[in-house]
Design a protein around this nucleic acid. Structure first.
Lengths: 195, 195
DNA sequence: GCCAAGTGTGAATCGTGATTCACTTTTCCG
DNA sequence: CGGAAAAGTGAATCACGATTCACACTTGGC
């Protein structure tokens, strides 16, 4: 039952409509101490699923860091564009403070993923810039979020993704990938997480 | 009196504390139709002041585009770091929907400022990348906001600013400025707006 | 000085939306 | 079966915060 409530709440987040599953108000309070905490848990589940995809890509230590970054950004963008309502809910929709806390933790986790990637790249000598990894990683997270919500995301899907990959690679100081490498990232298309 | 209320509300935004100026609840409603619209107006005034500073720098058509971008980012960062409470209120604090609308318009305005700068740079042949200006501009806005709020902003002021300038220049495809050009931007230090 | 218009006040009101709870229904075991 | 515990229900309650309003206080013209 707890699962059913979570599922229904998740659908509400992804689409909208409260009586999605037949669950009465009272029943919720048998399983969750408050509406806020219920939604915080729903948020965390959905946000972690998204994070796992990106984190898995960023952690492929066999690939060069630039390619990992490109593939991770690619995946992030495509998933956001494929589920815009969910993306908006996770990234920008005004939410209850308890959920805001979860959102903050999630952003922090993305930042850490990108920061680690940058540190590895620097150690491997693949990076020319001297940017502070946490700062650059935070800026990357913000850049992607801002570009993917709002009206820009409506129109050019493919062009938008390409722009953001270039933006990200340039920003942190990789040279842009050539055609060959660029194809490499398509291998990762819907990349199930495994961790 | 209307001004006094606006001033008090602005102080509340910048610091916190509702009875900042001696104004009774009822008095507010003689001058504003609702709390939400009052705060929307306060927000707009503060946000426009900030925007004007950056917009003025970005519009200096005598300077090369790269330097204008560096100086604009520099100003944006320094002002945010100098008034962190205000910066948080303007960029990230949860607010009433009416204020959220104003915030969205403000972000859009920043985006337009940067987009115009990029277009001019491209026309002048100063830019190597083929990024879509509105997309790159939106990403820049998001990058700055994300990097400037939250815990990163506490510590390294100077280093943070330098990192973000490099990040921004790299991202949109300018080569980083040399030492000489970099000094150019310090001329603009607190740059009063004039428009 | 005195009225009228304008202004200031904050306790009382009202609407909204989260939470509770008295009750019904289902489940599960002897 | 019988019935005790667990689960489900949704109308009634409650808390909170925005808004109102009946009244007190200034101000400025005559």
């Amino acid at each position: 039952m707890r699962e059913r409530i979570l599922q229904a709440a998740h659908e509400q987040v992804a689409e909208g409509g409260y009586a999605s599953a037949g669950v009465a108000t009272g029943s919720i309070y048998r399983y969750f101490p408050s509406k806020a905490l219920l939604f915080a848990e729903v948020f965390r589940a959905a946000a972690d699923r998204e994070l796992a995809v990106v984190a898995e890509i960023a952690a492929r230590r066999d690939d060069p860091a630039a390619q990992r970054l490109a593939t991770a950004v690619d995946a992030f963008c495509r998933r956001a564009l494929a589920a815009p309502k969910l993306a908006f809910a996770l990234m920008a929709e005004p939410v209850d403070p308890a959920v805001e806390v979860a959102r903050l933790q999630n952003k922090r986790a993305y930042r850490d993923v990108f920061a680690r990637l940058l540190i590895e790249a620097r150690e491997a000598g693949e990076l020319r810039s001297q940017l502070d990894p946490p700062v650059a990683a935070a800026a990357l997270v913000g850049a992607l979020q801002e570009a993917l919500i709002g009206p820009l995301a409506e129109g050019g899907g493919e062009a938008l993704v390409a722009s953001l990959i270039t933006f990200a690679l340039n920003a942190v100081g990789f040279s842009d990938l050539n055609e060959e490498q660029r194809n490499g990232r398509h291998a990762a298309h819907p990349a199930r997480s495994h961790a």
